[in-house]
Design a binder for these strands. Sequence first.
DNA 1: TTTATAAATGAATAAAAATTCATTTAACTT
DNA 2: AAGTTAAATGAATTTTTATTCATTTATAAA
Lengths: 190, 190
Amino acid sequence: MKLRDENKINRIYKATLTLVKQNGLAGTTMQAVAKEAKIATGTLYIYFENKESLVISLFNECIKESAAVVFKDYEMSAPFKVGFRTIWLNVLKHKVSHFDQTIFLEQCFHSPFIDDNTRAEAKKLLLPLRELLERGKMEELIKDIDTFWLVSFMIGYANEIAKRITYHKKKLTMETLDINFQICWDGIKA
Amino acid sequence: MKLRDENKINRIYKATLTLVKQNGLAGTTMQAVAKEAKIATGTLYIYFENKESLVISLFNECIKESAAVVFKDYEMSAPFKVGFRTIWLNVLKHKVSHFDQTIFLEQCFHSPFIDDNTRAEAKKLLLPLRELLERGKMEELIKDIDTFWLVSFMIGYANEIAKRITYHKKKLTMETLDINFQICWDGIKA
DNA sequence: TTTATAAATGAATAAAAATTCATTTAACTT
DNA sequence: AAGTTAAATGAATTTTTATTCATTTATAAA
């Protein structure tokens, strides 16, 4: 009996991300995904019921992976600014190094595949970040404004930098990180 | 002789924007566009050779409109911060009030329809903004870092706010504008 | 009015993409 | 080594979407 190859799912995911980055969700066909993943078209349908299912599974995978990365190396006990920097750099580095995921997620939010419910679920993963920001406000280190705007600011900015770096073939050097974190910190600090 | 109705083109554009915001470029069919614009499918092809042509025309239209808006009410003679605020608010207000365009442009950048050349042309429209920022650096009012990052920051942030406001059904009140401009200004000021 | 001209229509066709399935292949069991 | 099972294949089919075109309708000029 031939065993189902879990690794193949990753090949399919990878292929999908590559193609969506290149051509958008609009321009990505199942045939193309299969070809890119070096499998037959039919094989795709062994692993995923249909295109919608593939997109939704990959969406959840990306959300999960991205959430896992945010709090890497974060120490509750460290000073607020240190913790904030760690998290912001985690977000930025991840968005740059997995840029295809960044674009895929963006495309998903305006696709017929992802509904409001899925969107809402995805949002929940940012809860720990919101808590960190509440702490910063408590300690009077950052502006006392609706956390909503603070989150928008740090995530949105990281997103934009990731795009710019990729499109303009910039490198994510330590200098680049420092410059941008400085802007980010000055923006939110009290 | 029946005259070609230029206004119909706007109806088609409007319909396309509405549908792309809802379903993405992926989920937007010519049939659906025609129906939304309340015309027959065939009529669409009188005005646009094919789907690609429709998308590219609309892309150029959006870019043009957005460029026209940026410098509204801007006075060269005003102090730098005043000018900067005017422009930033113009960008933000436009992105919020024409959110369908914001999304359409975003989708275009990852579609098979828009090529690198078109992208580069679009970028040129930000030139006056770059010049303003150079002036700010000269006057030592803002951070002396690559203009590239400053533009990323102000445009990217406006983009993100527009998304957040729309998705979370927030209103663009004067308070909201002030809060966010404060963050933006603190971020770039020297 | 009548005629000429171009726009508008939408069903028909072509093209592209999604999905299926009969057949083959690979890996495990006895 | 033979038998069994499930994965893999890719051509064939179905479904969806883009595009065409013969016909109708509206407008302007004669």
